[in-house]
Structure formats: C-alpha cells, structure tokens
Computed example of a mutant assay.
Amino acid sequence: MTVDPTSTVKPALRPRGPRATRGYRAFQAVNAVILVAVVVVTLYPIVNIVARSFSDEAYIIAGEVTLVPRGFNLTTYHLVMSDSMFWTNYRNTVVYTVVATFISIVLTTCYAYVLSKKQLRGRGALVGIAVFTMFFTGGLIPNYVLISSLGMTNTIWAVVLPNAINVFNLLVMKAFFENLPVELEEAAAVDGLNTYMTLLRVVLPLSKAVVATMVLFYAVSFWNSWFTAFLYMDQQDLLPVTVYLRNLIAGATSAQNVGVIADADEVQAAATLQAVTIVLTTLPILLVYPFIQRYFVSGVMLGAVKG
C-alpha cells in the first residue's frame, strides 16, 4: 500500500506525556531554592577565607572583607611560604596522608572481603567486634599508654596505625563485595586462581568506584587530622601542617606569639596568617577532589544497596 504525498490527511500526533502537576512544580521550585541556599552557605566561608588571605589587615579588622579582597597584598603569602618549618610540616602531611591511606585501603579491603564471605566461620563475631569499636574506644589515656609502650611516639606509626581501619568504610566495602556475582569468583576458582589472586585480578578491577571513594574518605580524614600528631609527637619537625595551623589559631590573640612574625612590619600581616595557611592547607584536597568526585556517589550507593 502506497501513501499519496498529495493527501491532506495529517499523520497522527504522538501522544504527549502527562503534564507536571502544580504541586510537583512547586516542589521543584522549593527544592531548587533550598539547594541554592545550601550551596551559598557552603561556599561563603571558603570564598571569604580566600578573600581574607589576599586582603590588608586593616580591612579585616574593620570587618569590611566579605567576598572580594580589600587592600590586595601578597605579603602574608610570602611570609608563610618563606618559613621553612611550614614546608617541613607540609611535607610531613603529604607523607603521612599517602602512607596512612595506602595502609588503610589495604587493611580495609582485605577485612571487608573476608567479612563478605557468608560461609566464613565466626563471621558474625568478626563483624560484631568491628561494630563494637564504632561505639566504644579504649579511652585517651589507655591509648596513649599503649602507643608509648610500643615505642611509636614521635614516629609516623603513631599517626598511621591507630586509625588504620574506619568501621564505616569497612561496612560500605563489605556490602559492596557482597553484591558482586558469586559466579565470577567461582569461574576464577575453576581457572586455578586462589583467594588472593581472585581479589587482585577479579574483584578489585570491578571495585574501582568504591575503592576510589574510600581513598577519598581516608585521604581527607588523614590530611585534616591534627589531634593524633599533637598528642603523640613533641618534635616540631615531625608535626603535620594541621598542627602548624592549630598553633597559629591558638596564638591568634597575640601576633607576637606567631612564629613567622619577626618585626613590626610583619606584624601588619598577622590578621591574614590564619586565612593564608588555611588556603594553602586545603588547596591540595580541593585540587584532587574533582578527579575522584565522579566515583563518590556511585561508590557509596553501590556499597549501601544490598541485593
């Protein structure tokens, strides 16, 4: 059957989907307003700190710095970046974060993979022990006595080992591994792979999203950590940069107490020292986060859904 091109019969119109109701449009509008407000509240402190780091002390004290720098200057950046102790502590933070994150990922992955095996004897007890530590700890003094007795004070291990496994991250990875098809591991076993090779060559390549998420969680946690180093270290050249920042904040009431200030001209930059150090401290995380963020939501969701 052929269709006459000169025919005046109009083709049937494609049916349209249901129109959004007035209530749904109102919900979208309210949701958009709330999200914009959350973004503004979240970004304002960051932008304000950056503006203060480039502003003159007089404008900061007068409360005239909000989102735009006033009295633009780079003097404080020069003072902080010329302090050798700042870079020593900065290097310590990088080393501590890289080593601690690597150890934490290895231990968490191995423990989570073991707990994901339902046929494992004593699995419930192992999960219970891990969950118990989420709610109860040994206490500050017993922990300090333990670290001291093991001879780990003033060493990297005092920062790395006490918090090597985060139970929340452990449970997320455990749930993720439980959702992987059992047939994949059975096929690997048929091919002659043992448990370790199955984990390395089959499971981990399929777990990039959750592993990247855990790397982000651990890296941010160790990068921002300061109390552990403050507690177990008393040598200035071993401290992370977060303790350097903490000391600046603690001595902010008196400019003369800040170590990088040496004369009257440099005292004028005291009000921006904290802002400059905060910017330099958070900059690496802000630069790394966009490359890992795409794994963040998918990794958490995959580990949180049980099949």
Results as ranks from 00 to 15, higher is better:
W87T: 01
F86L: 03
V98R: 01
S104I: 11
V127R: 05
V106E: 07
I129F: 13
L140N: 06
M85C: 00
Y96C: 06
F102I: 15
T93V: 07
D83H: 00
G128Y: 11
G138D: 11
A125T: 14
I129G: 03
V106M: 13
V99L: 14
Y90P: 00
K117R: 12
I103P: 00
V127K: 05
V94I: 12
T101S: 13
K117P: 03
S116Y: 07
V131S: 07
G138N: 09
G122V: 13
N92W: 00
L126S: 11
T97G: 06
F136C: 04
K118C: 03
Y111F: 15
V95N: 04
V106F: 13
I129R: 01
I103C: 14
M134E: 10
L140A: 12
T97K: 02
T133G: 08
F132A: 14
S104Q: 12
T108M: 12
C110V: 14
M85N: 02
V114M: 14
V131D: 07
C110I: 14
S84P: 02
V127E: 13
N89G: 01
T108V: 14
L126C: 10
F135G: 02
R121V: 14
N92R: 00
L107F: 15
Y111H: 05
Q119C: 03
K118G: 15
G138F: 09
S84Y: 00
Y96P: 06
I129V: 15
F86H: 02
S104A: 15
V98E: 02
M134L: 13
V106N: 06
Y90F: 06
A130E: 10
G122N: 11
Y90T: 02
R123L: 03
S84L: 01
L115T: 11
V94S: 01
T88I: 06
V127L: 12
I141V: 01
A125F: 15
T88H: 00
T109D: 13
L126K: 04
L140F: 15
G138E: 12
C110Y: 10
R123C: 04
L107E: 10
M134S: 07
T109W: 12
I129C: 06
M85A: 02
A130N: 10
I141S: 01
V114N: 06
L120C: 05
T133C: 08
F86Y: 11
T108I: 13
R91C: 03
F86C: 02
F132T: 08
G128L: 10
F132G: 11
S104Y: 08
K118L: 12
I103G: 12
R123P: 08
C110F: 15
T108G: 09
A112F: 12
V127D: 08
T88L: 02
Y113E: 08
L107V: 15
V99R: 02
Y113N: 11
S116N: 07
G139I: 09
K117L: 11
N89L: 00
F132C: 11
L126A: 14
L120Y: 11
G124W: 03
Q119E: 15
A112H: 10
A112G: 13
T88R: 03
G139D: 11
Q119D: 15
T88A: 01
F102P: 04
T88N: 02
G128H: 09
Q119F: 10
C110L: 15
A125N: 03
L120S: 04
G128W: 12
L115H: 11
G139N: 06
T97H: 02
F135C: 03
Y90K: 00
R91D: 02
Y113Q: 07
